[in-house]
């Protein structure tokens, strides 16, 4: 998480690009389709979304139907990826897990996105003591290694989905707040913003009408990275037994369940891991492509 936040540090400094609105305007889609990252990322991520949404249709079996005497089968026509310890179809579980993990990651990313962007642009634009306080709070949260604070929070709030949402709500906003703050600060001194303010527009109005649209693309690019990082964290929590609880299929618990068999039936842990890697590649490329298209990264 920290790593990705810091990845955008450099881009925060380039936020000045944004305050030259509409110069040499090229439609977003034109630029997007011209970016190989965008095309590849959007295709891969789109495929994942389709799979997740259509899991009930695509899955050959009910992911929870057991066959107690047919556990740990290897690949066959009926079970392409074999079965798990309880005789459940691994392919079906993999597809449904995509649904679970993606849903949780997107849900968990929503509040921090809104809150972080709001806090960031207000602090950066208003400045003064507001900015000072927000900056100190950001510094404080950042001082905790991401996994340490998330695990401690999940521990405090309780395992499972509510704990995950609470934990990310409390720490996830910081990434956006930092970047948005820096961008909003740059905008504050930009000529056209000063003009808008001089023209009698209220601060909230300037923020919503002028600052927000300019910084939002950057926040959306960051959102993609954050969804990925939250997803990896959700899977990690699942592996540690602090995340999604059985029987809900989740890639992390699938890896954990397969761990005992790793020397004999390696695919039990490897396949869900590869699914996460796929998600990672698609989201990274997509974020990259969005950045290219919006020229923010």
């Amino acid at each position: 998480m920290m790593a990705a936040r810091s990845a955008t540090r450099g881009s925060a400094a380039t936020a000045e690009d944004v305050d030259v609105p509409r110069a040499g305007y090229v439609p977003f889609w034109r630029r997007a389709l011209g970016s190989r990252s965008f095309v590849a990322g959007a295709t891969l991520f789109g495929a994942l979304l389709v799979v997740a949404l259509l899991a009930p249709v695509l899955a050959p079996h009910d992911p929870s139907t057991q066959n107690l005497t047919g556990g740990l089968q290897t690949s066959s026509a009926d079970h392409l990826l074999g079965t798990d310890q309880l005789g459940r179809d691994i392919l079906s579980r993999l597809l449904f897990a995509a649904r679970t993990d993606l849903r949780i990651a997107v849900t968990a990313a929503a509040f921090p996105f809104v809150f972080g962007v709001a806090v960031g642009i207000i602090a950066g634009f208003v400045g003064g003591w507001v900015d000072a306080v927000v900056s100190r709070v950001i510094d404080t949260v950042i001082a905790f290694p991401f996994y340490v604070i998330v695990i401690a929070l999940v521990f405090a709030v309780g395992v499972g989905e509510p704990g995950i949402y609470a934990a990310f709500a409390l720490v996830g906003w910081v990434g956006y707040a930092r970047v948005m703050r820096a961008s909003a600060r740059t905008l504050r001194s930009a000529g056209w913003v000063a003009a808008a303010r001089g023209g009698g527009l209220s601060t909230p109005r300037v923020l919503v009408r002028h600052v927000l649209p300019n910084v939002l693309p950057q926040a959306v690019v960051l959102l993609m990275t954050e969804i990925l990082l939250i997803m990896v964290a959700v899977v990690t929590l699942g592996y540690l037994g602090l995340g999604v609880q059985p029987p809900t299929p989740d890639w992390g618990t699938m890896i954990a369940d397969g761990q005992n068999f790793i020397t004999t039936k390696w695919w039990l842990s490897a396949v869900p891991g590869l699914a996460i890697v796929y998600t990672g590649i698609s989201l990274s490329l997509f974020a990259d492509g969005l950045g290219d298209a919006w020229r923010v990264a």
Binding site: L86, P246, P247, A256, D257
Partner: peptide, 26 residues
């Protein structure tokens, strides 16, 4: 939480009771 054998058993019980219309949340 944290005992995988018990977690497997719970899932088996959950699935078994579905047959007699008892819905189980673990």
């Amino acid at each position: 939480a944290g005992n995988s054998a018990v977690a497997q058993e719970a899932q088996i019980v959950q699935e078994a009771l579905k047959q007699i219309d008892i819905t189980v949340t673990i």
